[in-house]
Amino acid sequence: MKTSLPLKIFLGAALVFGGLYVAMKKQTPPWTGPFIGKRVVIQKETDPSLSTSWVFADVDDFKKMFMLQKGDECFVMTEPEWRWQDAKGGFTLVPVFCPAKGGGWTDQHILDGA
């Protein structure tokens, strides 16, 4: 089946303009400027059986990446727009990066006392 030249031109233009439309409609992140965080060193012994001791890959499936332990140096994003809270409101996760181990999301409470 042969397609005509005008149809090819129309399809090509539609593809280009569709891509431009999607690119222009992308939302920018809610934050601007520098990332504000703080350096923390875990001061307390942690319990591996508690979820608050773990760093998760993301907030969708809670895959455990590594456990925070006493002496770990980490950097945490402290601004309210970075906090994720479960639907019940009892579990708050914040982004954390520990140079020696990696990064992910962890319970804010373990970092509050650090």
Score class of each variant (00 low, 15 high):
Phe75Ile: 14
Ser51Val: 12
Gly102Pro: 09
Pro99Thr: 13
Glu73Met: 12
Gly104Lys: 03
Phe35Arg: 04
Ala23Ile: 04
Ala23His: 05
Pro30Cys: 00
Asp86Tyr: 00
Val40Met: 10
Lys44Ile: 09
Lys38Ser: 15
Val96Cys: 08
Pro80Gly: 03
Gly71Ile: 03
Thr78Arg: 09
Lys70Thr: 06
Phe62Ile: 01
Phe91Met: 08
Arg83Thr: 02
Glu79Val: 11
Ser49Tyr: 04
Gly37Cys: 07
Glu79Phe: 07
Lys64Arg: 15
Glu45Thr: 09
Thr28Ser: 07
Phe35Ala: 12
Ser51Pro: 08
Gln85Gly: 03
Trp54Gly: 03
Phe35Trp: 07
Leu50Thr: 09
Ile42Asp: 02
Thr28Tyr: 01
Trp105Ile: 00
Gly89His: 04
Ser53Asn: 05
Ser51Ile: 08
Ser51Gln: 12
Phe62Arg: 03
Asp61Asn: 14
Trp105Met: 07
Gly71Trp: 05
Met65Lys: 14
Thr32Lys: 11
Gln27Cys: 09
Asp60Val: 09
Phe75Asp: 10
Leu93Phe: 08
Val59Met: 09
Arg39Phe: 05
Leu50Ile: 08
Gly90Phe: 11
Ala23Gln: 08
Arg83Ala: 09
Glu79Trp: 09
Trp105Arg: 01
Trp54Pro: 01
Arg39Pro: 03
Pro30Ile: 00
Ser51Lys: 12
Met24Leu: 14
Ala87Val: 04
Arg83Trp: 06
Gly37Pro: 06
Glu79Arg: 15
Trp31Glu: 10
Met67Val: 10
Met24Ile: 12
Phe97Trp: 08
Met65Ser: 15
Asp72Val: 06
Pro34Asn: 10
Ala23Phe: 10
Leu93Tyr: 05
Arg83Met: 08
Pro29Trp: 04
Ala23Arg: 04
Gly104Gln: 01
Gly33Ala: 07
Gln27Asn: 15
Glu45Phe: 07
Met24Cys: 10
Pro48Val: 07
Gln43Arg: 11
Ala23Met: 09
Val76Gln: 13
Val76Pro: 14
Lys26Ala: 12
Met67Leu: 14
Pro30Ala: 00
Trp84Leu: 06
Phe75Ser: 13
Met67Phe: 06
Asp47Gln: 04
Gly102Phe: 04
Arg83Ile: 02
Lys26Ser: 11
Phe35Cys: 04
Val76Arg: 11
Trp31Asp: 08
Arg39Thr: 14
Lys38Asp: 15
Lys26Met: 09
Thr52Leu: 03
Ala57Leu: 15
